[in-house]
Amino acid sequence: MKSIINYFKEIFSGLKSLMQGMKVTGHYFTHPKEIITQQYPENRETLKMFERFRGEVVLLHDENNEHKCTGCSACEVACPNGTIEIIPKRIEVEGRKVKAIDQFVYHLQMCTMCGLCIPACPTDAIVMANTFEHAVFDRSKLTKILNKPGSKIMDGIK
């Protein structure tokens, strides 16, 4: 007799537990304001990433198309994966030959976004941008040249 009572008790307590779970899901079904889903591709205009978010390395340029990179290769040494490749050249400034960058090559496909290159830069020339949509159709497009064509180094940066 006792086993039969226990049998029915189990059935009813089991049903009760299921109903309690349904109550939680039912609550959110009837309270759609408590749901925090973001409609991502639609909210592109309003979507703002946090300022520290590490998306990709960019070389900062000002309005005169000038940057701060001296070509010292400190970021190249700090990078664990060989993501940054600096191709230097010699330019003549006031009669002296000075080292400068010819191309600042950035291999996005190898970057792990560890952010070690940023503190390594002595002139704060590079920063991490907030962009995150890196998908492209061809792998070669991920190798970027960060210094803009015709850009030159700012005055007074050594």
Partner: peptide, 14 residues
């Protein structure tokens, strides 16, 4: 979100 704001990444924070 807390990680992203303070550390700069959501998963691989470093």
């Amino acid at each position: 979100d807390i990680f992203e704001e303070t550390c700069g990444a959501r998963l691989t924070m470093n």
